[in-house]
């Protein structure tokens, strides 16, 4: 009973934080718009400056929704990978999946120089899928999850070295464009594109909910899970697929975003004090959304019209969590 009320308290506080941060994302930006005007804009009754309506409805609203889904997707894919590889340092950026998506985008941006939005998205999907297929292929041969993680890291290195070679031959405008894309960005998804992102992200998130039971079984070890009747091989593939959809869609729409996938599952475990995915997965999802919304707000420099790169902000929140987890490894319940 005590555990249950704790869970409810966590859910309520994360829910409230999410709501506040969501509203914060709509209210706070580099252009100062009075709160009552924003409320009227959202209610559709505002009759003043039309630019403010465009800023709130076409820029801040899609940006905030994008941050919410991107944070949730990255955090959940990080959790799935950490459980699958039984390694607290697994995450979409570490396994080479983001690098694969990144490479796909680099190819179309630099080499083919297409400027259509759709090509970028398809390229990211194809890149992430190729890396995933490679990892799935190896997962048939390599049974040891740590070794598979190392293979993922190697594939990531290969992808980044190809990106460097591509950059070598690109023009400064393209490199510039590509470097800025690589800094992560929640602002690039317009209201028109948003439904696509939400559909992909929700699909991946929904898929992961069906994996809760086998994920818990995997925590006990693969042979134990097999004894419990879990089809380990197909579950591994299902987990990798889910992760692939979540990471590729986020990377395609927002660029490679670091640290959220790695750090948020730890924040969730620290809050919860347990690794039961029945609670851990939804809490990771909520915490991921909250962290991304917070990072999104922190990119706007107060009192100025400029914006900081997203990937300059995420490590400020992510890195201390990872260090805390490593230093306190022995005292943290979920490691024992």
């Amino acid at each position: 009973m005590k555990g249950r009320s704790k869970h409810i308290a966590i859910y309520i506080s994360l829910g409230v934080a999410l709501l506040l941060l969501f509203c914060g994302g709509l209210l706070y930006g580099s252009v100062r718009i009075p709160i009552d005007s924003i409320l009227e804009i959202i209610a559709g009754r505002f009759e003043g400056r039309q630019t403010w309506v465009q800023i709130v409805m076409q820029s801040r609203l899609p940006q905030t929704i994008t941050a919410l889904f991107a944070g949730a997707s990255l955090a959940v894919s990080g959790l799935l990978l950490q459980t699958l590889f039984k390694n607290p340092l697994a995450g979409p950026s570490i396994l080479g999946i983001s690098d694969g998506a990144y490479l796909g985008v680099a190819l179309v941006m630099i080499y083919f120089s297409f400027n259509s939005y759709l090509t970028t998205i398809i390229a990211a999907f194809v890149g992430a899928a190729v890396v995933l297929l490679i990892i799935i292929g190896f997962s048939r041969k390599v049974k040891n999850s740590v070794m598979l993680l190392i293979i993922g890291i190697m594939v990531g290195y290969l992808a980044s070295s190809i990106i460097s070679i591509l950059n070598y031959h690109a023009s400064p405008d393209k490199v510039h464009q590509f470097v800025l894309w690589g800094m992560g960005d929640f602002t690039g998804v317009s209201m028109e594109k948003l439904p696509w992102f939400v559909i992909f992200a929700s699909g991946g998130l929904l898929g992961s909910v069906f994996l809760i039971k086998p994920l818990n079984a995997l925590l006990l070890g693969e042979s134990y899970a097999a004894n419990l009747g879990v089809r380990v091989k197909s579950i591994r593939i299902a987990i990798l697929l889910c992760t692939g959809i979540l990471t590729a869609s986020t990377t395609a729409f927002c660029g490679p975003i670091s640290f959220i996938g790695l750090a948020v599952p730890h924040i969730a475990r620290l809050l919860l004090g347990s690794s039961n995915h029945k609670q851990l997965l939804p809490i990771t999802l909520l915490a991921g959304a909250c962290v991304a919304l917070l990072c999104n707000m922190l990119t706007v420099v107060p009192g100025s019209n400029s914006i900081l790169p997203l990937n300059a902000i995420t490590p400020i929140i992510g890195a201390p969590v990872i260090i805390y987890v490593i230093v306190n490894r022995r005292n943290i319940q979920y490691f024992n």
Binding site: G29, S30, V31, T51, W52, Q54, I55, S59, R60, F112, S113, F114, N115, S116, S171, D173, K174, T187, V300, N305, S306, I307
Partner: peptide
């Protein structure tokens, strides 16, 4: 050069007369 957010550029320049930009994409 100064890095600006989209909303601050929109706020100041929505009623500009002319817009020029450079690009080097294939299309």
């Amino acid at each position: 050069s100064v890095h600006q957010t989209f909303e601050s550029v929109l706020d100041r320049a929505y009623d500009a007369d002319i817009w020029l930009f450079k690009y080097d994409t294939k299309q």
